[in-house]
Amino acid sequence: MIESTYLEGIRAGLQAEMREDENVILFGQDIAAFGGAFKVTLGFLDEFGPKRVFNTPISESAMIGSAIGMATQGLRPVVELQFADFGLTAVHQIMNNAAMTHYRTGIPVPITLRMPCGGGFGGGPFHSEELEGLFCNMPGLKVVYPAFPGDARGLLVSAIRDPNPVIYLENKYLYRHVKEMIPRKADPVPLGIARICRTGRDAVILTYGAMVHESIQAAERVAADAGYGVMVIDMRTLKPYDEDTVLSAVAACNRVLIVHEGCRTCGFGAELAALVAEKAFHLLDAPVRRMTAPDVPVPFAPELEKAYRPDADKIEQALMELLEF
């Protein structure tokens, strides 16, 4: 076992796949000698050389468009977007080209788009966005969002091996805030399988990304303060998502809180709430609750950002209301 941060998990996953398969190549802004804005790819240029690791101009659309061209010619490109927010300047390449090519033509497009996302560090409106809801609404994409170092590594391995375009969301707040012991070998973590992070029978929290950690903290507090047992499920893959684990958890707990960092309307939580309403309504002892950011842009000032972003305090409060409904 080795100790790994979330960022080191991402790096290890990339490195493992690049060592395994010479068709895996990596490009993006400032990722070569400089190692990327967050230093995920530091040392990659030296190890893999300039044919496989190279910088691009500030041209998200050309980066993703050319990745589609490479992927359809046998490569497995991994593109680093400096921030998920900037992926929006290439959204037609993602949605209309990458995601739709296989359905239209039968040709697979195995690309992985690494998108650093999320707030909590003063990034303001354009370096903090949570765009998973948007990407989940694009047929043909897969969307993964790890919360732990081991999953960051294993899900990235699976994303790169997958024959489809995969949006790999990496939470910037977690880069250096989360550590765990992980096995030396970079085994893949299958896409589409959620992880039960904490067991309990009184309520279940469905969440992902940075909010997994806030939710666990809230669950620990209600256990200590009020004796409730709260299950926490990390969705890990948002598309395709793990319906079975969600429905089993609802059957076991009968109360559901959905937590995510991004805004509310048509957020991924709305999909989970709809699933529970459609398939498990008869199992509920209380209305499904959502704890999300409000429908506003991500603000900069710490007072505003704290008010915007869900955290353990807000989750704890929502959880108590749900448990005592």
Binding site: M63, G65, M70, Q73, N96, N97
Partner: peptide
């Protein structure tokens, strides 16, 4: 030959990438 999408310009980077992919190989 690639199947175009309606968004003009969108296929030019795909062409560039496809040539890069073939030359890489």
């Amino acid at each position: 030959v690639y199947a175009m999408i309606s968004h003009l310009g969108a296929m030019i980077p795909v062409c560039v990438g496809a040539v890069m992919g073939r030359r890489y190989r």
